[in-house]
Nucleic acid binder design. Structure first.
Lengths: 130, 130
DNA sequence: ATAAACCCTTGAGCTTACTCTAAGTCAAGT
DNA sequence: ACTTGACTTAGAGTAAGCTCAAGGGTTTAT
């Protein structure tokens, strides 16, 4: 039921440096230490790391994640803020998905163009940068 | 048919600083200058900026974008590399889309939880970090 | 002809998010 | 006892991508 920092690093793909850095930044306020001063991560801590990953990869900077955690620590008086944050994040994700789709179309077009170009040995630009 | 750096900044949402920075990094090798040393952007340059935006937002670092541009400048001998780059980028976008969908599910779940919590005035954690 | 609003270059500075170094502690195995 | 390996701290260093400051030039309107 307890993981060392090295085990968590393997599980999450984050480096031990990064995990300590996250803790220093206030992102892991629940990680305990044993008698020798070693960090002991619980399953719940792994859950927090998953959430951090989720927020980070959807474009919330570490500061924003810390804000959320601080709100969480403050308790029920910040429920609305936390809800708003997730709603805001949902909008961001929707925007990102739309953008990615648009970019995907462009990339597919380029793949088409370049596949032909490779077959023909030369690229014909039809008033189009490529 | 010619735009000043300020006009391009407005059109693209990039700052004039960023545009000059991109040029310095070799990302805009086609931008000309007029007799007074002012940059004059063409429509084709705007096309390049769109492509840069596309590659940047799909996770290619500026160095990678520069590599592509260098290949472009080298001509037909690099067609295969450029095709490979776009194929690689397509894979990246697919991965990003899958990740975003996963994160969206988590965020939607949080919104559900927190919407209830706000209505009830308190958050019940069911063996779940939140 | 003078001010306002642009533009220029060089080079320094900033933010984010790590990433690493140095010096040391601790527990387990041989 | 001693080595190995994983851990600790504080603090320095790094890379990417801007962002700004200083000092100056040009164009346009009044």
């Amino acid at each position: 039921m307890g993981y060392s920092i090295g085990q968590v690093a393997k599980k999450t793909g984050l480096s031990v440096h990064t995990l300590r850095y996250y803790e220093k930044e206030g992102l892991l306020p629940f990680v305990r230490k044993n008698g020798s001063g070693l960090r002991v991560f619980s399953d719940s801590d792994l859950g927090w790391l998953e959430l951090i990953e989720c927020l980070k990869e959807t474009g919330l900077p570490l500061k924003g994640i810390k804000q959320y955690i601080d709100w969480y620590l403050e308790g029920d008086s910040t429920l609305q803020q936390r809800l708003d944050m997730f709603k805001q994040q949902k909008i961001r994700v929707e925007e990102q998905m739309a953008k990615l789709q648009k970019h995907m179309n462009k990339i597919n077009y380029k793949i088409e163009i370049y596949t032909k170009a490779v077959a023909e040995g030369t690229l014909h630009l039809e008033k189009e940068t490529a």
